[in-house]
Design a protein around this nucleic acid. Structure first.
Lengths: 336, 336
DNA sequence: CGGTACGTTGGAAGCGCTTCCACTGCCGCC
DNA sequence: GGCGGCAGTGGAAGCGCTTCCAACGTACCG
């Protein structure tokens, strides 16, 4: 078994430096490259990452930080899809992924991440408006990409979608179907997504010169809060409910049903995320598709660029969203 | 900023070798140790992991492989708790965790894990009776600990619980409450846990000289399969349903309710896992508690031992389970 | 009191790779 | 035809740590 670059060099009759160049896409003549590559392939050689890392200062490992309450983390498929998007993209770039979940305090997590001195960079979910972990990461020398962002981060690199715009579009859609009393069950207050979606809803309602006094109920992105919120909104006589995410909509749907009301005839219902199950609800849920996997992939790609060019400009990526209109708002297909 | 052990050596007036010993709990006199440690603390020094890894051959990073369909992975809190247990234990041992999920084929995953040459060892969930990924890992030189195990693995290290015994105990409990037609909705067939729990159920029924002809329905550990299974079993006139896990029980509970039957008066219901929500169902669910977090922690500790003593005997750990009896099988507390 | 043993320390040799620098040969240009 | 330049290559110096080995001093034994 060939374990070092020196053996490889001997086998292919070149110097160790040349083998290294072949392995790292350095400048080598075609003939030499092919000769060496053939030996590499034949012996299935993999360079020692520790040695490579020591010599080059890069490790090929990035950290992924999702400091989120585990209930939310694993209840909400959003995170799993995000993780998969990143995981795929990292594998494609033949980089490893180290994961930090929210087991300990944010301060402690920060300490560990900065202390490990192994990471080329980190990707961190930034959902709270105010987050010491994110602040600490940004303040450090470690290349960092946020998923979601705080408007204040003008120098940070991030990947996000325009929640305000998307929520506005959804609300507008509901209004266009003739609804007037459109309620909103918010996401968790204090989170970027929660606040932004609320802002978008408000904007659309305001533009339509509609009051929202008793039409907004606080939720927390979870099914139970959807049920509770819907109960309140139905009492206030809404004819449509826009939920801050799909999970919330599931809870709302249940309560609407329990009251003997029909969707969308009596109450239109909309969500946000377009998670897998949204299309399979009864009726299929109108929602906003944000390519979650794609967000993960994009974050990885931004981070790679940032690592390669440490002093480059921050990478800010806003991914598009798509209004996915299904039967929960427009009836449409008659049901048997 | 102190970045190397040499600077540290100079600051504390000892040789580089001695500093290294302090950092690695080598044999150093108390006086020297304290002097050096003081400098380490003051400068908040962290050794370069790449250099350490290159010199010692150990990386302090372990792989965690959960090659599972993402729907299952993130829908079922079992995995999140497992992950947390491992994550905590690894952090305590100041080791890093690299995570592999089931994004690509098992063969490809195996390739990547073995190719990375960075890992001190791996922990892999072994739920299928037959799994090329697990086989490949065990065949490699990489220290490996399985969570769950195949009975054939006599040389492998693993952490598991005695599913057969636990399922037997649960079934026996149901019989002791006077039930005679105890149905079972299995877990996914072909998985160790699914088959073992079925075996335990069979054993108990057999010991009670009860036929099980029409009392077993295949499920897949998910809520919908619980609903479907319960529908069949109720048609067959059962007076108790033992579900292969808690998620399945939730589906079953819904169907029982929809038919206007009472739990436990008409049908007793039991699950397996004791996930967080089990205690909060209505009625609270009788189930089997397996310390999932503890399994994760135990796997980590076994792996650490294995890494330290590569040629040691395989570590086989069977963790105890606990029958958690709640109102879904014994009525008990009268409800308002 | 000499010798042995042990606990503690420093010196030095790597671990396997990247990368800077110098060297070689060749082409093309004036 | 000579020379500057360049592409391709090898030599060698580390990257920051662990760990073997030898040296030292001290304590204890005979």
């Amino acid at each position: 078994m060939v374990r070092t670059i020196d053996e490889l060099a001997e086998l292919s009759g070149v110097s160790r430096a040349t083998v290294s160049r072949v392995l790292n896409n350095g400048s080598v003549s075609d003939a030499t490259r092919q000769r060496v590559q053939a030996v590499v392939d034949r012996t299935n050689f993999r360079p020692n990452p520790a040695a490579r890392s020591l010599a080059s200062g890069r490790s090929g490992v990035v950290g992924v930080v999702m400091h989120i309450d585990s209930h939310l983390l694993f209840r909400d498929p959003y995170f799993s899809q995000l993780l998969q998007g990143m995981s795929d993209a990292l594998a494609d770039g033949s980089a490893g992924m180290m994961l930090w979940l929210g087991n300990c305090s944010k301060e402690e997590t920060l300490d560990r991440i900065l202390g490990i001195r192994l990471l080329d960079g980190v990707i961190v979910t930034a959902h709270d408006l105010d987050d010491p972990l994110v602040d600490g990461l940004l303040a450090s020398r470690l290349p960092t990409v946020l998923i979601g962002h705080r408007s204040a981060d003008r120098t940070a690199s991030y990947v996000d979608v325009d929640h305000v715009h998307a929520a506005d579009a959804m609300t507008t859609h509901l209004l266009e179907t003739g609804r007037r009393r459109v309620g909103h069950i918010t996401g968790m207050r204090g989170t970027v997504t929660g606040e932004d979606r609320l802002t978008g809803y408000r904007r659309a309602m305001h533009r339509a010169r509609l009051a929202i006094d008793d039409l907004v109920v606080d939720g927390d992105f979870n099914e139970p809060s959807g049920a509770a919120g819907a109960a309140v909104l139905l009492d206030h006589g809404v004819d449509a409910i826009f939920c801050a995410n799909d999970a919330t909509a599931v809870g709302a749907l249940r309560v609407i049903r329990e009251r003997g009301l029909r969707v969308p005839e009596d109450v239109a219902l909309a969500g946000f995320d377009d998670l897998d199950f949204a299309a399979h609800l009864d009726p299929p849920l109108t929602t906003v598709r944000q390519g979650v996997r794609e967000q993960g992939a994009q974050a990885v790609s931004s981070l790679f660029q940032l690592v390669r060019d440490r002093d480059g400009a921050p990478r800010r990526v806003i991914l598009p969203t798509e209004l996915v209109i299904r039967q929960s708002t427009v009836g449409g297909v008659p049901r048997a």
